[in-house]
Structures are given as C-alpha cells and as structure tokens.
Computed example of a mutant assay.
Amino acid sequence: MFKSALAYNGEELNNPSIVIVDLREDHLFQKEHIPSAINIPFSEIDTRYKELDRTKQIVFVCHTGSMGDESTKLLIKNGFKKVENLKGGMAQWTGPLTS
C-alpha cells in the first residue's frame, strides 16, 4: 500500500505504532530527517530488515520514493503485512524535520 507524502503529518508520524525508516545515506539522515525516524540505509536493508518489528506499521522514506518502493516489496515478500512507502520521499515532504 502506498500513501503520498502529503497523506502524513507530524502527529501521525509520532505514533508509537508507526516506525519511520529513512533509507538515505547516514550523512543525509544526520543533516535532517523526519522526527522519530530511524536510519537503515538502502544499501543495508536486505540484511537489516530483520531488525524491524513486524507488529508495527513500517513507513519507508528515501530521496524521491523509488528506494522505498523496492524496500516495501522486500518486506512484503518476507511476510510483513503493514508496510508503506512515503511517495515522493523527502523531496515532497513538507512536515517537520530535525537534525
């Protein structure tokens, strides 16, 4: 299931049942990211997805959405049920940011 970046706001993303996974490189994540997001770079998602809680809703965010699409497919293939991609990624995100 894909939602557009505009479908989320800061309140939803602070929900403890939602895990925001920022797929961008560490230096970009450190510069700015969505509050409460965790960083698992796209180059590591193939092995690190096992760290994610299958009972929570996983929301991927990347530069523009394409890495999130691929990561969403990976998790669904591996039995995750509640996975979404922030369509448009950080390029279209207008919500709060932190560093």
Rank of each mutant, 00 (worst) to 15 (best):
M1H: 07
F2T: 06
F2L: 10
K3I: 08
K3W: 15
A7E: 14
A7Q: 06
G10A: 04
E12L: 07
L13M: 08
L13Q: 06
N14F: 13
N14Q: 11
S17P: 02
V21R: 09
D22M: 00
D22W: 03
D22A: 00
R24H: 06
E25F: 08
E25P: 05
D26P: 03
L28S: 04
P35R: 11
S36L: 13
S36I: 07
A37D: 11
I40E: 13
P41E: 08
F42P: 00
F42Y: 15
S43W: 09
S43C: 08
E44Y: 12
D46W: 09
T47P: 05
T47G: 12
R48D: 13
R48Y: 12
Y49G: 01
L52F: 06
D53V: 03
T55W: 12
Q57S: 03
Q57D: 09
I58F: 13
G65K: 03
S66T: 04
M67T: 05
G68D: 01
E70R: 05
E70C: 00
S71K: 07
S71R: 04
K73I: 11
K73F: 11
K73L: 14
L74Y: 09
L74M: 15
L74W: 12
L74S: 05
I76G: 02
K77Q: 12
G79S: 10
F80T: 02
K81W: 14
V83E: 14
V83T: 12
E84P: 04
N85K: 01
N85Y: 08
K87I: 14
G89M: 06
A91C: 01
Q92M: 02
W93Q: 01
P96Y: 10
L97W: 05
L97V: 01
S99E: 15
S99R: 14
S99Q: 09
